[in-house]
Design a protein around this nucleic acid. Structure first.
Lengths: 126, 126
DNA sequence: GCTTGCATTAGAGTCAACTCTATAGTTTAC
DNA sequence: GTAAACTATAGAGTTGACTCTAATGCAAGC
């Protein structure tokens, strides 16, 4: 498939896809060139980009992603390094979820306050 | 207290605190000027900055935070708008937590795979 | 009174992650 | 066969959130 189709299938823009390639997040398993120099994408590219999107949306930088994905792809990362990365990432995510819970608690308090004020017909400034 | 102390107490840099003020996240309830033009901070500033930090760490932009906080402060936001914001933010956070769970599942799969490979003495490329 | 350290400002610089522009070649539909 | 739509590149511009610099002034300890 060509870049436009991949863009539609992944929800990324063609610009972003080219940018990701430049940043080293795609390799010859995902994309090659046709004779006209157009990029030809394999289905693997869809999976890869969706993976990138998911991890990126939980706070992985492209640089970090690139390192870990290249490590997995080329086996330059040892298995132990891979395990360590996964474990530390999992801890990070658990921490993050706790932060979200804290914010949710704060929002809940705000909501109670707001609703109380709404029901109070004499609600005033301060 | 002066800016340095506030920085220590909030874990932000003095640069960042001044930047936040410039961006409208602090007002006269949090900071005023001494005769020598030094900023003098009240305890409210600590709470405010911690709130900003927490919300910001779960993906609120400073612009969004500024709007909602100013709305709360000056009562230009109606109660209903406040409730709506809180509710939509809560939904957003729930969605985000689901994303985190998905990533955790992916990481778990990766971990299983890695551990299997580690135990396999004949582990090879691909 | 002098040094060291903290305070002020305006504005420049940085970084990540896009996002867009200009220019030019290719493909497709009619 | 030509216009519209898609592809390519290099490189410039944008945005958000800092982060730092330079020049200068105030303060506290000795």
């Amino acid at each position: 498939m060509k870049i436009q189709e991949l863009a539609e299938r992944t929800g990324l823009s063609v610009h972003t896809i080219r940018y990701y390639e430049k940043e080293g997040l795609l390799d010859e398993r995902h994309v090659r060139r046709d004779t006209n120099n157009y990029r030809h994408y394999f289905d693997e590219a869809i999976e890869r980009l969706k993976l990138v999107k998911r991890f990126q949306s939980v706070g992985c930088s492209l640089t970090e992603l690139k390192q870990i994905l290249q490590g997995l792809d080329t086996n330059t990362t040892t298995t132990q390094q891979g395990i360590d990365w996964v474990l530390s990432k999992m801890k990070e995510i658990e921490r993050k979820k706790e932060e979200y819970d804290q914010v949710l608690a704060t929002l809940n308090k705000m909501l109670d306050y707001k609703i109380a004020r709404q029901d109070d017909p004499g609600n005033k400034h301060r």
